[in-house]
Design a protein around this nucleic acid. Structure first.
Length: 553
RNA sequence: GGCCAGUUGGUGAAGUGGCUUAACACACCGCCCUUUCACGGCGGCAUUCAUGGAUUCGAAUUCCAUACUGGUCACCA
């Protein structure tokens, strides 16, 4: 029996040939140098920080070269696939404003000419290539059971031999086609394996975009091509899909590095041109329990999920900015020099990518977010706060809606200037910083944080005298402060802090102590933004009411 | 265990043989500015680049060994 006949027996329904697919998926008509990259997750849940970093760069490369970025779903392991997995991925990308040019949009929806973009829908394509390989004697059916495989593995371990299905351990490799045919006809379950032409003594070399030249022993493992469920294994699907979809750049985590020899071999056997590989360092974290460095985990680490940032109200731009600082070591410096530029203006360079895995630094991300938010216009802050609270804090949402102009003005305190205030790092903490600005929230048992002046009678007196003689709603800031000084003087406090420090015995305190009393009476907090502006926003009536709360204590 | 990669301060890192008595940023700590806070300013924070050896007039930078960390050795991706 010939190999061709065996191939026919195994895949009788496959009529297309690899040549047909070459025609169906022709080379892309792109300008030279245009990169085609892809995000190829398995639908096992949300997108996590590590993949997001990869994705940001995968999107960037085509952006810089007028190329194509597409989304391919790798769902060849139905056991791991999760309900709504594709939707989750598509939504996460959308949330992070990463646009795809081609690919899956949902279970049954997609755009682009190189689909299907969901691997489980590409079964017959893989079968076609498997058939071709079998007919050329480059692949064969294997009848070994999982138990047998376990057994040889144990044996290899025991004898300290290299583990795997190769050489004399590849029991089904040298079966005759007649025997193969017979066992298939008898209904024995089987898988398709590559008949590896490699020799472990030989070396293969390839150039990784981030790591440079890497030398490996040649692959001699008869790796699985098609599983017993009829779907391909990653390696096989990777070679076929990335070739047919005309991918030029494959970016993935370094956990894939050691399978590169298999991929090189597969591409060669299939007659495909090898894409450029970039194996990225993993995003790590120190495990709280063991103290050891480990990969950021979807299950254990809340900050691994993109939803975490959404809930906290950390802008996606800030997350991307942070990711880029991990991605390219010169990015941060560039950002500092071009604070208002967009990521799109930055030129990505694989050489500036660290090969070692980096620890995820939430502190730093928060700092970036703080800076980002500080540069936003008040109106923009308002809109984003509104959007965030709508989803996560109804009470605050209602206040923001009810007092729109007031809130925009509030957000504008010490904003929209060269060195803006940096109070908020995330939208979820805005309410905690501004609650006292709303009478609705300024209720119950208020804890007043009075400082150096904390005698209640003295405080009441200061407030009364201020309201009676020195408060004028119309004052500009300078006049307002002059009046505070006048008040201080009348009550025995120094007009200037310096004067007080020079002669502390001559005064009860200084103007700073007086303004602190006003600040705390107004807000209950000892730390607030510019007091003059807050008072201005309050207006006479509300200000008086607030002060009376203390005066009537 | 085999194979592969990585190793510069608490963190991200610059650095590709002399300009480095190791940038920059985050964090932290002082001081200053200031009616509070924030901002801002100034200063501190690795005598040393995992360790040992070699090459060199000269090494974080080249080479070799060792150690450690991570990855991988599935009909998972």
């Amino acid at each position: 029996m010939t190999d061709k006949e065996l191939a026919e027996l195994i895949f009788p329904n496959i009529t297309k040939t690899p040549e047909d697919y070459e025609k169906i998926y022709p080379e892309r008509k792109l300008e030279s140098g245009a990169a085609v990259s892809r995000f190829a997750p398995s639908p096992t849940g949300f997108v996590h920080m590590g993949s997001l970093l990869t994705t940001v760069i995968e999107r960037k490369i085509p952006d810089e070269t007028n190329g194509v970025f597409y989304l391919r779903i790798e769902d060849t392991d139905q056991k791991r696939s999760v309900e709504n997995g594709i939707k989750g991925i598509v939504d996460d990308l959308k949330n992070f404003e990463i646009k795809i040019d081609e690919g899956a949009l949902g279970e049954d929806e997609e755009i682009g000419d190189y689909g299907p973009y969901i691997q489980s829908k590409r079964k017959e394509i893989y079968e076609c290539y498997a058939k071709d390989l079998i007919s050329k004697g480059l692949a064969y059916p294997c009848f070994c059971t999982p138990e047998e495989l376990d057994e040889t593995r144990n044996l290899q371990e025991l004898n300290k031999e290299r583990i795997g299905y190769y050489g004399s351990f590849a029991k089904c490799r040298n079966l005759s086609n007649e025997e193969r045919a017979e066992r298939i006809k008898n209904g024995e379950p089987y898988i398709i394996r590559l008949k590896s032409p490699g020799n472990y003594e030989n070396k293969v070399m390839f150039n990784d975009l981030v790591r440079g030249k890497i030398v490996f022993p040649e692959n001699d493992l008869d790796v699985v091509l098609i599983k017993s469920d009829g779907l391909p294994i990653y390696h096989f699907a990777h070679a076929i899909d990335d070739h047919l979809m005309r991918t030029t750049h494959v970016l993935r985590g370094e956990e894939w590095l050691s399978s590169v020899p298999v991929h090189i071999q597969l591409f060669k056997i299939l007659g495909f041109e090898l894409p450029q590989y970039a194996h990225l360092g993993l995003v790590m974290k120190i495990d709280e329990e063991t103290g050891a460095k480990r990969k950021l985990s979807k299950r254990k680490d809340k900050e691994a999920a993109v939803s975490f940032y959404h809930e906290q109200g950390i802008p996606v731009e800030a997350v991307k900015l942070y990711l880029m600082t991990i991605g390219n070591s010169n990015f941060e410096e560039w950002l500092n020099q071009n604070p208002d530029a967009s990521i799109n203006d930055f030129k990505f360079n694989f050489k500036k990518m660290s090969a070692s895995g980096s620890l995820f630094d939430l502190e730093k991300l928060i700092n970036i977010s703080r800076n980002y938010i500080s540069r936003l216009k008040a109106q923009e802050v308002y809109e984003r706060a509104l959007k965030h609270s709508k989803e996560f804090d109804t009470e605050f949402y209602e206040l923001l809606t009810k007092y729109k102009d007031y809130c925009v003005n509030m957000f504008n305190i010490e904003r929209e200037q060269k060195k803006p205030r940096k109070d908020y790092a995330m939208f979820s903490e805005i309410k905690g910083y501004t609650w006292y600005m709303f009478d609705e929230l300024f209720t119950g048992d208020i804890n007043y944080e009075f400082q150096s002046i904390n005698d209640l009678e003295e405080i009441k007196n200061i407030l009364k005298v201020y309201l009676e003689k020195y408060y004028n709603e119309e004052d500009d800031e300078q006049t307002w402060f002059e009046r505070l000084k006048d008040l201080s003087e009348e009550l025995g406090y120094a007009r200037e802090v310096k004067e007080y420090k020079e002669n502390p015995d001559n005064y009860k305190g200084h103007v700073g102590d007086i303004s602190m009393v006003l600040r705390v009476a107004l807000s209950s907090k000892s730390m607030t933004p510019n007091l003059y502006q807050i008072m201005k926003l309050f207006g006479r009536e509300r200000l008086t009411n607030r002060f009376n709360l203390v005066i009537n204590k």
